[in-house]
């Protein structure tokens, strides 16, 4: 029979696992970044059933108290997650920057082309101030 603490850990793990699945299911989490969270929630779920193995592993590396063992690995896991997300954020920023710069350069090209077209149109046709019907396209931005 599971103790109250183990039951709580199991239920929390189950809730955590279900939340991750729901977030992926509704496209609020990308699958790529959810794998690690799925692994963590499965780790939670395994605690009540494998507590003896975890305790033995803790003793092997010199951690006597099982609670300290889980704290230690919890901190390491959070650290690794932070590193993963920092990398993802850096990549996303670089991509955003590249796109923004390309958009800026493209906008400049479009304005130059519009000026060329306007100039060619005005030099090809007989345009007087009375029958002029031009539109300042740049103001649309």
């Amino acid at each position: 029979m599971m103790s109250k603490q183990m039951l709580l850990i199991f239920l929390l793990g189950l809730a955590f696992f279900a939340s991750i699945i729901m977030l992926v299911r509704t496209y609020r989490f990308r699958e790529k970044y959810s794998l690690l969270w799925i692994g963590i929630s499965l780790g939670f779920l395994s605690i009540p059933f494998l507590i003896d193995y975890y305790t033995a592993l803790g003793k092997f590396i010199g951690i006597i108290n099982p609670i300290s063992f889980f704290f230690f690995f919890g901190i390491v896991t959070l650290f690794l997650l932070s590193v993963q997300f920092t990398i993802a954020l850096t990549v996303a920023f670089n991509q955003r920057k590249d796109i923004a710069q390309k958009v800026a350069l493209l906008e400049c090209k479009i304005l130059e082309l519009e000026k060329k077209i306007q100039f060619q149109a005005s030099s090809n046709s007989l345009v007087t101030p009375e029958n002029q019907d031009t539109k300042d396209i740049s103001k649309d931005r």
Binding site: I21, V24, R25, T26, Y27, E31, K32, S34, L35, I38
Partner: peptide, 19 residues
């Protein structure tokens, strides 16, 4: 292989009416 297995599992659950 890990990613594809997870993705195939999620394919059974995801909402089919994505924006």
């Amino acid at each position: 292989v890990i990613r594809m297995n997870f993705s195939m599992f999620m394919s059974r659950l995801v909402k089919l009416t994505g924006e």
